[in-house]
């Protein structure tokens, strides 16, 4: 079997983040696929909550086109209001881990999914928040998944903060009034895994995917990226992991997902 591409490796690492998680909140896009891989490999009865207001605990045969595709609710165990899942379950602290797509992520884990360039006169207008701002504000352990690999997607500070990370670093998130214990825990991208400094809240490289060099990762972000004293190499994907990721990607393609080449 051909070894995993870096994009596939991102999904494998994303799924591994959900190992041993019993209750998760799944945001739009790649987290939907990563959660399916996690269920098939490690955690079949993992409970997933969604911003549409429902909760379910088993894999569907059909790949949902988004976290709001009600294919996902076919075997839901609870269908309610969006406020039930976003506030009564997530904010109240009953969800262990949330996973969110990061279109553009900065030094302090702030996400921009609203615009490229000036907000009032953008070069490209993107979708906006949806529930992403709520996930970023209210999650206890937030994992950001991003398929981006170029410096234009990792600026020093995003033009527009759609979903709050650690704002300008240090104490700023707490001082702005965000709940204690919330904020991003890690970013997984095709290069590897990044975490946040306990004091400065700056994102730094903790581990790389097989075959990725620290220098290459440094070249993919705009700011001078710090790396852990010892950057570890993440375990390569097993044939089983690669097989399942490819099966899920094939399903995604059939459901008109745009996938990287």
């Amino acid at each position: 079997m051909k070894e995993a591409t870096r994009f596939e490796m991102m999904l494998v690492s994303g799924a591994r983040e959900l190992k041993h998680c019993r209750r998760v909140f799944i945001g739009f896009h790649w987290p939907v696929i990563a959660s399916r891989v996690a269920r098939r490999l490690y955690q079949p009865d993992m409970l997933c909550a969604y911003e549409g207001g429902f909760v379910e605990d088993c894999l569907t045969e059909t790949m949902p086109t988004s976290n709001n595709d009600l294919i996902l609710a076919q075997k839901a165990t609870m269908c309610g209001d969006s406020l039930d899942t976003l506030f009564m379950l997530l904010r109240a602290g009953w969800i262990e881990t949330s996973m969110l797509d990061g279109f553009m992520v900065d030094r302090y884990g702030n996400i921009n999914s609203s615009c490229l360039g000036d907000y009032k006169k953008p070069k490209v207008r993107l979708a906006g928040s949806g529930g992403a701002a709520d996930l970023a504000a209210n999650s206890r352990r937030l994992i950001i998944l991003s398929s981006a690999t170029t410096p234009d997607r990792y600026p020093e500070l995003v033009d527009y903060i759609t979903s709050a990370g650690y704002l300008t670093g240090g104490d700023s998130r707490r001082l702005a009034g965000f709940k204690e214990g919330t904020g991003p825990s890690a970013l997984i991208n095709p290069f590897g895994r990044f975490v946040f400094d306990g004091e400065t809240k700056e994102m730094y490289l903790e581990a790389v995917h097989p075959g990725v060099s620290v220098e290459e990762v440094r070249g993919s972000v705009v700011w001078p990226l710090r790396a852990a004293d010892h950057v570890s190499e993440i375990e390569p994907a097993t044939p089983e992991e690669i097989g399942i990721v490819r099966e899920e990607l094939a399903k995604a393609r059939n459901r008109l997902y745009k996938l990287p080449d």
């Binding site: 999914s113 070069k123 207008r125 906006g128 949806g130």
Partner: peptide
């Protein structure tokens, strides 16, 4: 007044919205 405008299939841009803003 909204939280986002796009087409979740793909996902793809909401092109009329983009023309309006851009």
């Amino acid at each position: 007044v909204t939280s986002h405008v796009w087409n979740p299939i793909g996902p793809s841009s909401a092109y009329c919205f983009r023309r309006a803003v851009e």
